[in-house]
């Protein structure tokens, strides 16, 4: 196999641009914490929520999932969320969040979304979303803001 010199650069070559898409105001039941060998399991049921955006209007299908975070020894939460939306036109949409919620207020995640390829929300498929979130003091309300990584 040939030798090949990687042309290293002193600046970023490939771009990523974010484009705001929609927001989700979610309401949760109180978190339930359990000690485990891997840290604390922090389970929080998603009770309800509304998605607002030009290209997506939907509600959280109540109790369709929630947060299954791990609270690590450094107090950072590994965010692992799964739930279902029902769009205004009745279509079903799956959401997954993977990210970090830190004690310093940083709450960022990547959202992976599945929608019907035959429906109105096919644009959500094969799209990477960058999410920023604001959590209320009692952690019962979380506002998520979704940006497409174009």
């Amino acid at each position: 196999m040939q030798d090949f010199v990687v042309p290293q650069t002193d600046k970023a070559l490939g771009e990523v641009r974010l484009e705001y898409a929609f927001q989700l105001q979610a309401r949760y039941d109180p978190p339930q914490l359990s000690r485990t060998p891997k840290g604390e399991l922090r389970y929080q049921d998603i009770a309800s929520g509304e998605v607002r955006g030009e290209r997506l209007r939907a509600t959280v299908y109540p109790n369709s999932g929630g947060q299954y975070d791990t609270v690590r020894s450094d107090r950072i939460r590994d965010v692992d969320a799964h739930f279902i939306l029902k769009a205004e036109n009745g279509e079903w949409i799956y959401l997954e969040h993977v990210g970090y919620r830190r004690p310093d207020g940083y709450y960022r995640a990547i959202a992976y979304i599945d929608a019907s390829t035959q429906g109105a929300y096919d644009w959500l498929n094969n799209t990477t979303f960058v999410v920023t979130a604001k959590e209320s003091a009692d952690q019962r309300q979380v506002d998520f803001y979704y940006y497409v990584a174009n």
Binding site: M1, Q2, F4, A12, L13, G14, E15, V16, D74, I76, G99, Y100, R102, Y106, R108, A109, I110, T128, V130, A149
Partner: peptide
């Protein structure tokens, strides 16, 4: 361990490789 990342990826050939440009969120 505490940062979310997103990358631009570009397939290149000869040899077969992908260039990932990683951004901190």
């Amino acid at each position: 361990n505490r940062t979310v990342f997103v990358a631009n990826c570009e397939r290149q050939e000869h040899p077969d490789r992908t260039i990932f440009t990683y951004y901190e969120v």
